[in-house]
Design a protein around this nucleic acid. Structure first.
Lengths: 345, 345
DNA sequence: TTCACTCGCCAATACGTATTAGCAACTCCG
DNA sequence: CGGAGTTGCTAATACGTATTGGCGAGTGAA
């Protein structure tokens, strides 16, 4: 009899209207947002009471259709399995949910960003946050008519937020130099992600200021994963003519892999090898020794991105003023120490 | 002039209809799903071509409104920061996205499950997957009219999928007994989660079969987190009258905490202390030594839950036949070994 | 040619809400 | 008491798609 056999039809504004003895339009005026609508106080109360009595819940789908807004945003990240991105998402989600927006989460590792965007557009998302994914390289019209905010990926076309990536590299370099290291290697991701490039640039620049250059052998490229970090470290450890005393990894996953490789090879950390990561994911404090790393405010990054996006959705006209990069901070833990005095003969 | 200043209006079925010289209804018949609608092949092709030329993309919001289905499902998990749940979600997402459904993800740690459900209902989700969250304890009507599938939480009312939790406990016990351990402790979560209770039950039962009972001091309760596992292990290590030679932790996070506590206290793992976790999250292979654990097929769990849900959405009438629990598997790694010969005097 | 039937398309309507134009009643002021 | 202005509500319509009943044209049989 009912359209959906297993579900009692939902309460609509019409039901509330009938119950309160007013028209559907009035119900919509009272409940539908705009609080400064001209409705008598008494009527307002009758409607609110009726809605409560019946357990009315607005149908966001219908509302979306008429307003042309879905109150939903999309988030695209490179891979959720990296806890860093999960933190970013968590920051986004918190802000969005508080503002009444829902979040559709897309992992670029499952499905290509292009297809994710197709799906998101079909669902009429109002805007998108794209994290470290090279929005420029998407099909030109894939983002037309959408508000977009980028995280850790600069662009002329869209606003964004970023952490101080060169600063992160500098901090790591400074720390290792301060401990007395001169033989320093770098493990950076092979993929061309802006943040990683900048971390590298800051790191190398700071080394150079102290007259230290990175032999090309000591600049390893790897996928940003634990396994790849492990492999890169193994390669470094196997070097014939002396190994570095310290390694900076462009993110924590790489550093964790490096740490694992050291421990597996019987290389003591930090006595024989100092390691610095970047991001400060929760994992950094799970391993033993705890990972020295450059802390990046992931949640805050996400929260800010969401706030920018929501603000632009409310006032599309307002021009965007570029934000300062979020500061990073060195977290000194157990994987760094002074280099051992030269014992090689 | 246009309704939304920054966005060119989307292409609708009306536009396609005009372009193809047919009515909107015909366009809808061709593009709107039902492939066995009576439309001449030539017309069909004209419409498809027009749609392609114009870049038509169906407005899922409008479709949802008329069909009373949103092609969106909700997923509620206890906490995304536990990678196990992330894997479950990833399994759900994969199946759902392939079937054209979107997933709204809710972390019960941000916001209470009740409020999440409110938000999900407002968005007219068609169904929900609830993971290990005691759906029974929700407000009675919170799930009315929704299809629900539970993960790792049995219920008379809704279908579900689960892993073989007692089996996991038994496997862990068997492994430790096989190595010769007799002084065995257990760290289980304090929260009343069915899966955890069952893991404990299977574990204790198997020990009892070998005539071993768990002194109440050696049955520690903790929040299912790394920090809590660490604290629980510290407590075990501080025991006056002899400590256990092996500990089974009800999930990997606890085990990782326990491992950390051992290493921090200078207790060698596995020489002086064997540790077994449960879940087999990726992290288990990051720490050194790698964690011996009972592998639970998280992604598969999620995928099955999603398949059940989608199937019920397609044919609501079909009765659900209970599934067998998914088998678990012991992954022997580096944190377990034979106990040291008694060296205490 | 006529009747019965099928095929292919379309007009009309529904979904639940937001929004606007406008009507009726009332207030205020001269 | 008449006109202008305000207040409080409603009727009507729109959003973009799905769906159905029905209509004209075509086909085949008699």
């Amino acid at each position: 009899m009912t359209p959906r056999s297993h579900a009692s039809r939902s309460i609509t504004t019409h039901d509330v209207a009938a119950h309160a003895g007013v028209s559907q339009a009035t119900v919509s005026l009272v409940l539908g947002g705009n609080p400064r609508a001209r409705v008598a106080q008494a009527t307002r109360e009758r409607v609110v009471r009726a809605a409560r009595d019946l357990g009315y819940r607005p149908n966001i789908v219908a509302r979306s259709l008429v307003r042309g807004r879905s109150y939903t945003i999309g988030v695209v990240v490179p891979e959720l399995s990296n806890p860093f991105f999960l933190d970013v998402v968590s920051g986004i989600q918190k802000v969005a949910v508080e503002a009444g927006y829902a979040v559709l989460l897309c992992d670029a590792r499952d499905t290509s960003p292009g297809r994710h965007l197709e799906a998101l557009r079909g669902r009429q998302v109002d805007g998108i946050v794209i994290d470290a994914l090279g929005a420029e390289s998407l099909p030109a019209d894939a983002l037309d008519g959408l508000e977009v905010v980028l995280v850790d990926e600069p662009s002329e076309r869209w606003p964004g937020v970023a952490s101080d990536a060169p600063g992160a590299g500098r901090l790591a370099a400074e720390h290792l130099l301060g401990l007395g290291h001169r033989r320093i290697a770098f493990v950076g991701p092979a993929t061309d992600v802006h943040t990683f490039r900048m971390r590298e640039r800051g790191f190398v620049a700071r080394l150079r200021e102290d007259g230290i250059s990175l032999p090309s052998d000591w600049l390893r490229r790897a996928q940003p994963s634990i396994a790849a970090g492990q492999a890169a470290m193994r390669a470094l450890l196997a070097m014939k003519d002396g190994r570095p005393t310290a390694v900076f990894c462009a993110n924590d996953l790489l550093a964790l892999g490096a740490l694992k490789a050291c421990l597996a090879a019987g290389v003591r950390v930090p006595a024989e090898m100092s390691l610095v990561g970047c991001d400060d994911i929760e994992l950094a404090r799970v391993v033993t020794p705890e990972l020295t790393t450059v802390a990046v405010p992931a949640r805050e990054l996400g929260a800010r991105a969401a706030r920018i996006l929501l603000r632009r959705l409310e006032k599309p006209s307002e021009p965007h003023k570029p934000q300062k990069p979020l500061p990073v901070r060195l977290a000194v833990r157990g994987t760094t120490a002074r280099p051992q005095p030269e014992t090689e003969r």
